[in-house]
Simulated assay, not measured.
Amino acid sequence: MLTSNDIPLAAKPLDRAAHHRTDEAWLEEAFARPDVLVFLMRDGQPLMEGEGGPSLSAGARLDTKPRNLVWLGANASTFMKDSIRLFMGKDKNGTPIFAVGLPDDFTLRGTLLEGAGSFEDMRAAAASLSLLEANLVSTARSITEWHRSHAFCSKCGAPSEPTEAGWKRVCPSCGTEHFPRTDPVAIMLPILGDECLLGRSAGWPPGFWSCLAGFVEPGETIEQAACREVFEEAGVVCLPEKAEYLFCQPWPFPSSLMMGIHLTAESRDITIDPNEIEEARWFSKAELQAIMSGDHPEVYAPPEMAVAHYVMKAWADS
């Protein structure tokens, strides 16, 4: 049975060793260890070996070869000016791992890393990396992007400062503590008999279809949000009490938790909201099986990096 631990970007996580985050002396010593592992992020992109490809849109096909992060050791201290250091945790050998969030204007030109690699589009990077490295850069992107967009206190407006190894910000003016946010999102597949409902957003490449999706609002359960979104986007009625939760995935665009759900549809008629989606359509299980195997003549599925792929596959294989 597939679980959240098997989903890309969530698989093979580190021991986060969060108890070290408040120990500045330990963090300094760990960052200077000869076996420390450090990778770099700039503008939400990880530094990877070799030349990177073009940026990818949400619905683009991912056809990438395996690549590795550029790993640094204690010499990463060279890049700490105006940067944010994030303690990621320890690997199975107890080796400390850090990410460094570089300034947006940082360039490799003239540094010891010139020619060593390139900052890669995050979607392409996640599809190219090992499971562990993909989990690392996904987490680092979410946290470093949070720092970039939350430099000021939301209570008093004063500049806030990073603390606890990058996992918290504190306002020195009013003392307010700020923590990274994660936005819950429902990724749902309505099912009625031998058919399931898929949708398309405007701007997606021809042939790309996926699950419907939407953010959870305050006061909602994930099941209620899934049913509400399906009705708002496609006019199809589903009941929260019939929802089946499957698994979840951290998604760093910018920082969401995607929760896969199967819904039982109560109606078949489709009335789309053109402000939400471009098209919705019922597919038979045989059609979905062909889509997932890559044999459908017109339609292709989300890439294996996306949790929607596994939400669709779970029903196609049932």
Rank of each mutant, 00 (worst) to 15 (best):
L2P: 00
L2S: 02
D6H: 15
A11T: 14
K12G: 00
T22I: 04
D23E: 13
W26H: 09
E29V: 11
A30G: 04
A32C: 06
L37D: 00
M48P: 04
G52W: 00
K65M: 12
P66D: 10
P66Q: 12
R67D: 08
V70Y: 02
F79R: 08
S83W: 07
K90Y: 05
K92V: 00
N93A: 15
T95M: 05
F98H: 08
R109D: 13
L112K: 15
L112V: 15
G115T: 10
D121S: 11
M122W: 04
A127P: 09
S138N: 15
S138Y: 03
S142M: 14
T144V: 10
R148A: 15
S149M: 07
A151T: 14
F152W: 06
C156E: 04
C156W: 02
E164I: 03
V170F: 00
P172E: 12
P172I: 06
G175M: 08
D183A: 14
V185C: 09
M188A: 11
P190G: 07
D194T: 14
L197G: 13
L198C: 09
G207I: 11
W209H: 06
C211I: 04
E220D: 05
I222W: 02
E223T: 02
A225W: 00
E229S: 03
E232N: 12
E233M: 07
E233T: 07
V236F: 11
L239N: 15
Y245D: 01
P250Y: 06
W251V: 01
P252T: 06
L257K: 09
M258A: 14
M258I: 03
L263W: 03
T271E: 14
E276N: 07
F283T: 09
S284P: 07
I291W: 10
I291L: 12
M292Y: 03
M292D: 01
Y300G: 09
M305A: 07
K313F: 00
W315Y: 08
